[in-house]
Nucleic acid binder design. Sequence first.
RNA 1: CGGGGCGUGGCGCAGCCUGGCAGCGCGCCUGCUUUGGGAGCAGGAAGUCGGAGGUUCAAAUCCUCUCGCCCCGACCA
Length: 507
Amino acid sequence: MSKQSKQTAISPCRADDYPEWYQQVIKASDLAERSSVRGCMVIKPWGYGLWENIMRVMDSLFKTTGVKNAYFPLFIPLSFLEKEAEHVEGFAKECAVVSHHRLEKGPEGNLVPAGPLTEPLIVRPTSETIIGDSFAKWITSYRDLPLLINQWANVVRWEMRTRIFLRTSEFLWQEGHTAHATREEAEERTRLMLDIYAQTAEEYLAMPVIKGHKTPSERFPGAVDTLSVEAMMQDYKALQSGTSHFLGQNFAKASQITYQTAAESEEYVWTTSWGSSTRLIGGVIMTHGDDNGIILPPKIAPSQVVLLPIIRKPKERDAVMHYTESLAQELKSINYHGHAIQVEIDNRDIGGARGWDWIKKGIPLRVEIGPRDIDAESVYIGRRDKDPKDRQSISRNQFVRELTTVLDDIQISLFERALALRKAHTQHIDDKRQFIDFFTPRNQEKPEIHGGFAYSHWCGAETCEAQIKNDLKVTIRCIPIEADQEKGTCIYCNQPSTQRVVYAKAY
RNA sequence: CGGGGCGUGGCGCAGCCUGGCAGCGCGCCUGCUUUGGGAGCAGGAAGUCGGAGGUUCAAAUCCUCUCGCCCCGACCA
């Protein structure tokens, strides 16, 4: 019985050791696990179901703006990457390289690579260059523009240190690539896709974000401008949750993507690229999770409801299961934001551990069904956004009737809770001393959760930015789009500034 | 790549200093008893102690080499 005295399902709790809490939550939730392959993860069915729903949401939003899906090769000739100078610089250090195409028995019976390739291939870290190669062939006339393409794929970036969902050597993502006749149109597309990321984050993941421009030092290698959406996690650190790049004509020139205008001149196209990844799942975990595990926003949860039949005596089994199955059927016919409610039935005979399993998995609603409920035509429900012990009995009819309303209510409560946290840990700071204090933990040995978002002025100099990063591990997350122009002086050097930027520690 | 730590049934660990039958908790399987909330009792399965070599009558333990992982830095969606 000692376990029953435990206060929370996840140990350590967030306040005690946030990074360890994150690992434990993932383990307890059955979302994913480390693979035997260095730096890689296995996404388990519950986690993949979550990703499928996120994909479904974004895919349909992309398509409403005219984007079509396609697929390009995993391998990119080394020479392609070399075409854009800054691009090479940015990605070269983290590329996996394929150098051979065959294995042979070695002297000790082990397999050794043989058949060296004449030109090594890299495993795509991103696909601008290989897609650019196709774009160059597909685009000849102004009538071919705009070209709006997206691909759902895996990419590989050989990171030094990895964390499940946040930074793994291989991850799943979508990358959109578009080509346009004019600069304005490409810039507009860059903004449009950023808005879709913000919409996905806020309306579906219940994760409030700030839209903004990256500073030159944080820009995508080869981009003219990088936009991002930034969310605050519960340790007050920022998570970049989607990026949209205006690439100017850099990649058009590198890949010779040209078109003929109506006036018969030959011009380079203007391109954009934009991506978001399984990292979003890490964002969901760290935005909504509590000390009992993850909490999934109903709109993207693989299942919204789990039914837990309570069978005390064998003779009750049939009646309880029948009631449970008929309720499941009824629920599955309910439309929730364009899709059927997904229902799980868990009749494992493992006592109370069953309920906790689903709490840790973050399912929005748990419904207990026992003989008493059947007699009363009722159900006993627990909401994941409330305390595990906070459950109530309501009539079956009312439950069915109000189900989508309750789910929407959970969705909204999660968003508002996250927004409140962000507000509580966001400050306008104009004093350098105060700025340093804000980002300095009181306990240097074992830093407590501290900091947040600081809206402060920046002179625009890379040296100030670098100094702050060096001194405090704080970076400029973005130059917010939706903010007033306001004159001030740089938080670090006192030089004039035209706008506040968002400073934070980041993932 | 620099600094630190760790590799022992599925998971978490003890045992190592001082060599002597491979253990504990959880999980898993079976049976009985329980059942509105993380059950109890009994029985059971599951380990070449990361790998290779060495010292020894005897190695999880000592020595050498090696591989992998985790944490802190630098790098990054």
